[in-house]
Amino acid sequence: MINTKYDVVILGGGPAGLAAAIAIRTKTDASVLLVDRQHQGEVRVGENCPPETVLLLKQLGVAKEFYRGGHQTCPGYASVWGRDTPGYNDFIVNPQGPAWRLNRQAFDKMLADRAESCGAQISWSTRFIDAQKHSNEAEGFTLRLVRKSEDRECEVQARFVIDATGSTACFAGKLDINKSVDDELFATVRFSTLAQGRGSKQIQLEAVEHGWCYHSLLPAEKVVSMIVTEKKHLVSLRENEFQGFDDALQNTNLIGSSIAKLDLKESSYHTYCIRPGMLAAAEGSNWMAIGDAVASFDPIAAQGIYKGLSHGLQAGKKVMTWFENREQNNSNFSQQVKNQYGDYLRNRNHVYSLERRWSNAHFWLNRSSNNIDYSQLIKNES
């Protein structure tokens, strides 16, 4: 049962929100409610994370559970990008070890179990509707929520709110804080079960004329494949119940030959709109946005889970400082977000600039000619 008052309400139950709940409860005695519109165990996109992720999991106290969670190491990347032959980037020289291919449902459950064991309350299948800010800062916000099981609204008072609602940044939007969007992409994702065959443990990337493709084997005999493109090319991918998607992957060089060796069954298809961008403000006196809510990246960056966990840990520090002495809360989170986003933009544009085989194709032309004033994004706050 949801109470009427909490010290902290976290909107969003992905890695960022769950990490924030863990960090807050391990640093403070604050009462924490986390709500998420999805039901527990629902499939989320994001199945790989860099080696450094383990350092964050240690800080969250779940590293041992992670190693026992059936996740699998990734030796590196194989890519056809900027040339017709594959290139390789191995993790063997990384001091943190290999990257990881996740059993995402087990990963999310691990974080949720840890959050609840720390004393956070989680309400799944609960949708955030609106927020009203009180003139008295000590009272914080009144949030309107709807639990799907009850199909009726309830109101919750929160002294501090954390927006971890993903790229939509629902709470920030209610405060009239909008995201500056610098691109729009569409990802079509296919999840399948491996019936027979043996594929490479490397993550595979391949550039094509109208976008790029991604393919990876996952734990528990699962396989994920993705095509990232622009909206006008979605129709062809959806033709004949996504036969167009299957054909497009088969026509690639590296990924197509890998998939040809696999017998896949129980495939499901999902399409997502991706709008990379950054919020005009990352935080206020008694709220903050974290993860994709504050800064959403192009999936080519492969930083979503790491960024979410990192921001969640920083949320724990900010909330602890806020409750101890809110007059002296000198958070530098906003500047960190700006710096992080500036680094991301430079890296993304560099990666896209490497592909010149289709320099006149709309997809590549758009992403090689972005004129971005990085100095405005990473300048020091006055």
Rank of each mutant, 00 (worst) to 15 (best):
Y6M: 14
I10N: 11
G13M: 02
A20C: 10
A23M: 05
T28M: 09
R44A: 14
R44H: 15
L56H: 06
G61P: 05
W81Q: 03
G82V: 10
P86E: 06
G87S: 11
N89A: 08
P95V: 13
W100L: 01
R104F: 02
S117E: 14
A120G: 05
S123I: 13
E139Q: 14
R144V: 15
S149F: 04
C154P: 00
C154F: 06
R159N: 13
R159K: 15
V161S: 09
G166Q: 12
G166E: 13
L175P: 12
E184S: 09
F186S: 05
A187T: 11
R190D: 02
F191W: 10
T193D: 09
A195S: 12
Q204W: 00
E206D: 04
V208Q: 04
S216I: 00
V223K: 00
M226W: 01
I227R: 03
I227F: 03
T229Q: 08
R238A: 11
N240D: 11
D247P: 00
D247H: 07
Q250R: 06
I255R: 05
S257T: 14
K261Y: 00
H270P: 03
H270L: 09
T271P: 05
M288S: 05
V294I: 15
A295V: 10
S296W: 05
K317W: 05
S331D: 11
N347D: 08
N347K: 13
N349E: 12
S353P: 08
F363I: 07
L365W: 13
N370H: 14
D373P: 06
Y374T: 08
E381C: 07
